[in-house]
Design a binder for these strands. Structure first.
Lengths: 137, 137
DNA sequence: GCAAAAATTGCGACTAATTTGCAAAAATTG
DNA sequence: CAATTTTTGCAAATTAGTCGCAATTTTTGC
């Protein structure tokens, strides 16, 4: 099984892109956190220029490596299902915690079926559940 | 049953806010479209100042009247479940169409159960399914 | 309805976020 | 390794979002 690192390199190579230091750096940072804002990413990669970060995120999105989530006021970035285990998010509306929720076969199956009723071929999805976490009950 | 218009007015009044022309205007525009970016909203409400739009959206979010979705590159605004029937979104990755998908009891029930297993009290959720619409198959 | 009080808006200035052009640097090719 | 192609960093330019404040609109209590 290819490591997600090799997978990322293949995604770049196979589409004619180079494997560069900033790209590896950003990928590593993305792996290190469940979800993060662009601002956090910029802060965590001090050696990479802001413009490069924007450009790389855009490329990673096109290649299906990262996706954006709207959680609260600003969007957050995280690796897609191809790079981390598919999961959903529990967002505590009181303390702001973001908790990963493992995928559930029953739920996923229902999704596909539903989409199909609208003659829609689902390839991917994203679910956010808001509420109160155990600490904030 | 109160019209969603009356509901919006009550939400403002009961929290000590005024009912103003710009607020009614924005609400009406939000009702007229499934989801729209701030930019579209600004363009569709030429008589309302940009700053007022941002302030109103912020207020509407606090009052639970609108919510943001991250679809594609920029966030989109839409009325919350209290104002339009609860639903989810099918987003076509080819043509960009956003299709509303009616809620499904089985799905909703599963969500609550899942959240509960993480000792999380769900109050609200948002689901986006990406894929290809019937026209783009 | 009307005048006073309170809340909101529009405007202009301002700060933050994102994009772009381009020469220099790094990666890829053979 | 030299030539070619792709990226990067930097600075400048846009675009998005915020803020202070005087003018205007809403609301309140007759």
């Amino acid at each position: 099984m290819p490591s997600s690192n090799q997978q990322m390199k293949f995604a770049l190579k196979s589409t004619g892109h180079s494997i560069t230091v900033p790209r590896k750096q950003l990928f590593k940072t993305l792996q290190a956190h469940e979800a993060q804002t662009i601002h956090e990413l910029v802060a965590r990669c001090p050696t990479v220029d802001r413009a490069t970060i924007y450009r790389t995120i855009e490329l990673f999105e096109e290649l299906g490596i990262v996706q954006r989530l709207q959680i609260g006021w600003k969007y957050q970035l995280e690796l897609t299902d191809s790079y981390v285990h598919h999961h959903h998010h529990l967002v505590c509306t009181r303390c702001g915690a973001i908790i990963a929720l493992a995928e559930d076969a029953e739920l996923e199956a229902r999704l596909i079926t539903l989409a199909a009723t609208a003659d829609f071929t689902a390839s991917d999805h994203q679910l956010e559940i808001r509420g109160l976490c155990s600490n904030c009950h």
